[in-house]
């Protein structure tokens, strides 16, 4: 797993291309070609995944989710940061300015 500093709201993130994603009953399930693991992103995690198909700041992701979901901003920010941090550690998302994880091998 990748060990790095925690993300902040100003970080720009993007979904890694080396994944196969499928919708299953409203939830997104993903296979990482890089590590061979399967992941369940759930429904909201799947929505986040769609939003970061192109580079977006974490704050932009949160703003969009606040428009769609009934949630407090502080709670949303913290939970989205935790979720993206976990995905980053699994090598599933890229952070702008960092080398792609595949290039580190």
């Amino acid at each position: 797993m990748i060990s790095v500093e925690k993300l902040s709201l100003s970080d720009r993130v993007k979904a890694c291309d080396q994944n196969i994603v499928s919708d299953m009953g409203g939830e997104k399930v993903m296979l990482s070609i890089q590590n061979g693991n399967y992941y369940n992103l759930g429904s909201i995690g799947g929505r986040i995944w769609e939003v970061i198909g192109n580079f977006a700041t974490v704050a932009e992701v949160v703003d969009l989710l606040l428009e769609e979901y009934d949630v407090d901003r502080t709670e949303c920010e913290q939970q989205v940061l935790d979720f993206l941090d976990h995905m980053r550690k699994e090598g599933l998302v890229l952070v702008d300015g960092e080398a792609a994880s595949a290039d580190q091998a």
Binding site: Y39, L41, G45, I48, E67, Y69, Q79, V80, F83
Partner: peptide, 18 residues
């Protein structure tokens, strides 16, 4: 004016499947 109801929030979790 009709406004679209917001969806219920649930903490996003990354579940690593076995």
């Amino acid at each position: 004016m009709h406004t679209q109801a917001k969806k219920a929030w649930k903490q996003p979790q990354l579940e690593v499947l076995d």
